[in-house]
Nucleic acid binder design. Sequence first.
RNA 1: GGUCCAUUCGUCUAUCGGUUAGGACGCAAGAUUUUCAUUCUUGAAAGAGCAGUUCGAUUCUGCUAUGGACUACCA
Length: 515
Amino acid sequence: MERKVRVRFAPSPTGPLHIGGVRTALYNYLFARQMGGSMILRIEDTDSTRFVPGAEDYINEALQWLGIGIDEGVREGGEYGPYKQSERRDIYRRYVKQLLDAGKAYYAFDTPEELDAKREEAKAEKMTFQYDASTRLGMRNSLSMPAEEVKALIDGGHKYVVRFKIDPDREVLVNDLIRGEVRINSNVLDDKVLYKSADDLPTYHLANIVDDHLMEVSHVIRGEEWLPSAPLHVLLYEAFGWTDTMPQWVHLPLLLKPDGKGKLSKRDGDRLGFPVFPLEWHDPKSGETSSGYREAGYLPQAVINFLALLGWNPGDDREMFGMEDLIKEFSFEHCSKKGAKFDYEKGKWFNHEYLAAMPDDELAELFKPVLAQHGVDAAAFSDEFIAKAVGLVKNRCNFVKDLWDNCAFFFKAPEAYAEKDIKKRWKEGTDVLMRELITVLEGMEDWGAEASEPVVLGWIKDHEYHMGNVMNAFRLTVVGECKGPHMFLITELLGKDETIARIKRGIDNIKPVEA
RNA sequence: GGUCCAUUCGUCUAUCGGUUAGGACGCAAGAUUUUCAUUCUUGAAAGAGCAGUUCGAUUCUGCUAUGGACUACCA
């Protein structure tokens, strides 16, 4: 019988969710939905010292903004809870004991200082110290010490850790859906700490395996940084006797810095001027603010599309994918093996595409807050007016906030006129021409663009005026500079009175520049 | 240092032994336009190196080089 697909995204609440983490969550989600399975959100807070307030809420909000739905989790509930590791202490204790009783783990009393000293010592001799079969008998643990002494130490409240006893000289096989078979010799693995008595919590490795097993996770889809510890995890499944239900491994390639070397980090965003977080984040400790995609004006669909293509492709030339398409098309076979450099320019392009394709009325709603930021009362304009204004300029914008630069003149008459355009288009006598234009405009019955355009153009032609000079002077008075959408679409939206008023203002205020 | 993973235009990538090595972003040029854009057309731009397997390798194998990850009582 095929096992039901259950995947999990398991972040630590140690800060804002990184964009690479978002992609991992996305791939988990896509796979779960495609297979009709479940998506679990598990909070891995086994490191009490790194807990950051607000981080968990941030994770939830970010996933929600992006449309990555969660079926089971702290908020959603579910049959396999609790979904926060700090609330699962009793469970972990039980399984640590199981390993201890079976002789597959042991107590260790070495202090962090002693271990540091060992490492320093080894380093001085250009060696590395590893806590494993070759060294553990020389350390302070229940394998090297008499049972009574161990018992006395524990009963006396001595701090200890439990380490996994890894057998030497074993070949461990990790079967990865993206990378194929990865083999490693157990000699390079160290006796990992599974549990620390100091805070009565397991480490990632133990908690992860126990939870994945108990939550019946079928596929572990995570970042490539976990590949080196995957053999350890395989060995843990073995030690527990859970090999037959061990999840399928999938290690995703990393997101790399756009320039230079290394994986994308928090600092790169500030340094290169783009967000590395989905949402803006205010660090409660340092007070620092990190920018987010949402606040930078990105549309969630664009972020999803962009992220999905960073490491996955459909096998052909298609590039535009909505969430539903991704769910249908996604596959690990078409996931890349190599890390992807983060291409921010491409991300901007995706946003442009989604922005330009968005219906005008929806875009208008997103634009209203921007209007307010610039002191424009959106209520003074009809929704239809705003939608039309936005519709005329959206294809020249990457972000919602760019709309303002391109259509501000619809909401505020020009207060100044572009110097270089005056120089080029406003000569001696232009004012006379503009007065004549007013007369032509005033005489119009139908103000629509289709009707007014031929009238004005006909007037220009009949008098053999210079088309470019007249039209640009006209534009200068209405827009304030020589740019923007088709002239008659602007005047149609602005209305006859406003258009003529602006020309008059221009005639009064624009003076030719002496050459 | 050790272990593991990777390697096609500047970037993201297609190709699952036989192609003029394709697409997209970005870049450049041209066209269109009453302006600025958009749009359209075109162009420059790639198989890390060396062996081997093969009639034939970007594709398979090995070595080298380069890049990356990991190497905590962090995840």
